[in-house]
Amino acid sequence: MKKTAFLITAIVLAAGVLISCSGSNAGRVNQASAESETTPTEVTATGTPTPSPSPSPSPTPSAIPTPTPIPVKELSDFDPKDFFKDAVFCGDSLLHHFRFRAGPSVKPEIFGDRNTSEWLTIGSYCVRIAVKDVKTLHPGDQACCPKYRGERVNLWEAIPETGKTRVIMFFGPNDIGITLVDGFIDNYKALIEHIKETTPNAKFYILSITPMRKDMQFIGRLCNDNIHKANERLREMCDENGWTYVDVESELCDANGNLILYKNGKAISDGTNVHLTSDGYEFWNSQLEKLAREELQKEYYEGFK
């Protein structure tokens, strides 16, 4: 009899403890939720603290809704692969080498694999050729245009077919020796205008031209003076048109603006005039990763506007 009474008492006590625990936990969740709604660290899309709503004189249900606070996201919260899966890279041998010596070949955790982005690249590609309709080019120039689905293509036709809207471009070394800086910039602008016609929602990311070896310049034509002038003009072109200029040059230049040959004991130049080793592309990797995170963060906050 004593045992039964003891058992009943124990059950009643245990039930009481359980009920009180669940009640206090629920209270904590609610409290946490309330705290998170008013936390001063949260910012709106414009980066200003969320104002607490002022009391409304008339308690009508159709009163101004309480602004929803936007959860803060740091650059590190974004996955660059989400950026690169929407990207198409267009350009010459430097981009081609980037695909196989750097970027997706060495940092798949950032860039995805070699086929996460689309690649419309080929050695000797230039805006001077890319701006013209491939069907009107003579066979020698046609052979310098990239292929897509087995055909030589115009960028403005292939890009919409890829379904990608982030257009990352690198041109210059095969242009400025021939058309000089003015012609290069004019052709670049015209090419982007063509692409905008077929892909109106495209975003353009223009990579600067990397410097070349001092000992392999063609003074007055393809040389570092002209490369730096072209980069200034590319930056202006981007600012004027709302395109993004991406500096992949500055850390590769020595004090005189020539390509550095070694950094931390590692070769940067692959021995040709403009091409880089895998280590030489480290700056490209970091700049493109930074670009991807910044763009994703910008778009995230724009989504709340």
Partner: peptide, 15 residues
């Protein structure tokens, strides 16, 4: 030498 994918085979040759 680097291996290319079926996507590359399609783009380069149309295969």
């Amino acid at each position: 030498m680097v291996r290319l994918s079926d996507e590359d085979l399609l783009n380069t040759f149309g295969f």
